[in-house]
Design a protein around this nucleic acid. Structure first.
Lengths: 251, 251
DNA sequence: AACAGTAGGTTCATATAATGAACCAACTAA
DNA sequence: TTAGTTGGTTCATTATATGAACCTACTGTT
């Protein structure tokens, strides 16, 4: 790995749970030398990718990120594209739908979502919340397409129990992943929020790496096996549409 | 300059006008060796900061940008913070207001804006359009706080004429900047859009570098010298508020 | 078909830049 | 005082980035 990649790797440690990181904390997180990290962080800061709190001296993501995101969304509106696909999918299935992207090893962050308005009982999404890999359909969908090493690493980070139905047995999760990979989609029932059934398909970037997932979240009362079979082709189409708009390549 | 900074510098070449850049074009833009650039671009791509079009092989901004921006805006909502300040300013002055951030040497991109709803005749903003440095109050406000070398570089890039009143004389612009720096704000009249008067104050990041500007855009009929004097303290307050929310330091 | 000009991408000896153990300095708590 | 933090710096050593020359594929031209 080159110096550039090592430096950019540092940025992946930032998350909604850990928005500010000090020098020593970076030493802990990476195991690298303090002097080395200090120089890397300094360069990232000089380029505006990091900002340093004047008082605490901790680092946080800098203004260059916003600038680039504006250019990216203006010229290649991934967010808008995802939103358009979701509008279509929502109109077809009349359930809450969302597109989430991988955030390092911590989970998935929601890029775009639609809370379905047509039912009295519906699934609400907290967009600020990270979706855990092991307890959501989206998370399982991307895990199913990760290399074994990465799956191992993530499963070893801990499998918190969110509900009675959260699957916390690593071996069983691994078995699920084999099925999901074969079938091309993942499902979960009440593993993150009680009574919510999730159906998710992976999304790929232009490097053919799994970048996220598109998912349908519905009350379990409205999502029996028959309904699953009927919405799957629509979800597949949505996944293809998002992947195509992201990378020019349909899966 | 270290390798990391050199690599990140490449990203600044992307803009709304130039969203995709090929290898040879990078050679032209930077004057560096093809092999070197190829390796740097490859590393940026491997980290998800760049994406490569499968057919044309051109590079564009990648998914990592969006991921980081989501973390940044979730945990440290610069955009939202700017918007809140703008709401207050708009309620006070009842004119179109906006916050723009510097985008390399190409101009300013609008981060947040409010089109004032209270007047029949009002200034509309095209958020996708880059604000030129030499023809807008925001641009002149930041130029006034740049080092001389950077001002020279930008003025040499060309001074397109947008209206009859666009100032295209570099020497006169330089004189204006001296005044603006002294007064702490910049003004322009019809230089970008006919009959629009702009008033802008610079914004600073935590490194004390000028990062953007907050501005009021009004029809010239509503912005005489007397009105300017009355809104300036409000603009100053808004600039302080944004800068404080961005960096923890009031100017 | 041969040519010239473009593009993206690769090789390997060389030179430059990254590294890290040991070092400060400042602050906090015992 | 001491011991444990924190962020930050120095400089000899080592590893990495660099770039001239090379390859390959595709374009339109003669």
């Amino acid at each position: 790995m080159g110096t550039i990649a090592k430096a950019l790797q540092l940025l992946t440690h930032f998350s909604t749970d850990l928005p500010e990181i000090g020098l020593s904390q970076f030493v802990q997180l990476t195991g690298e030398d303090k002097a080395t990290l200090h120089r890397r962080l300094g360069e990232l800061k000089a380029c505006g990718f990091l900002d340093q709190d004047a008082a605490s001296r901790a680092y946080r993501l800098g203004p260059a990120i916003s600038r680039l995101e504006i250019v990216k969304e203006t010229t290649f509106p991934a967010r808008r594209a995802a939103m358009e696909v979701l509008r279509k999918l929502n109109s077809q299935v009349s359930e809450t739908v969302h597109v989430s992207v991988i955030q390092g090893d911590q989970g998935l962050s929601t890029l775009a979502h639609i809370d379905d308005p047509s039912h009295g009982i519906r699934v609400y999404m907290d967009t600020n919340e990270l979706l855990p890999f092991h307890a959501t359909a989206s998370g399982l969908a991307v895990l199913a397409f990760f290399e074994k090493e990465r799956v191992d690493k993530i499963l070893k980070l801990g499998l918190p129990k969110f509900t009675e139905d959260t699957q916390t047995n690593a071996a069983r999760i691994r078995n699920l992943l084999i099925d999901f990979r074969k079938e091309g989609f993942a499902r979960s029932k009440g593993g993150f929020e009680t009574d919510v059934v999730g159906l998710a398909m992976p999304l790929f970037d232009s490097r053919n790496a799994c970048a996220g997932a598109v998912a349908i979240a519905a009350p379990s009362s409205r999502m029996d096996n028959k309904r699953v079979q009927s919405v799957l082709p629509l979800l597949q189409q949505a996944a293809n549409d998002v992947t195509a708009s992201w990378s020019g390549r349909a899966s």
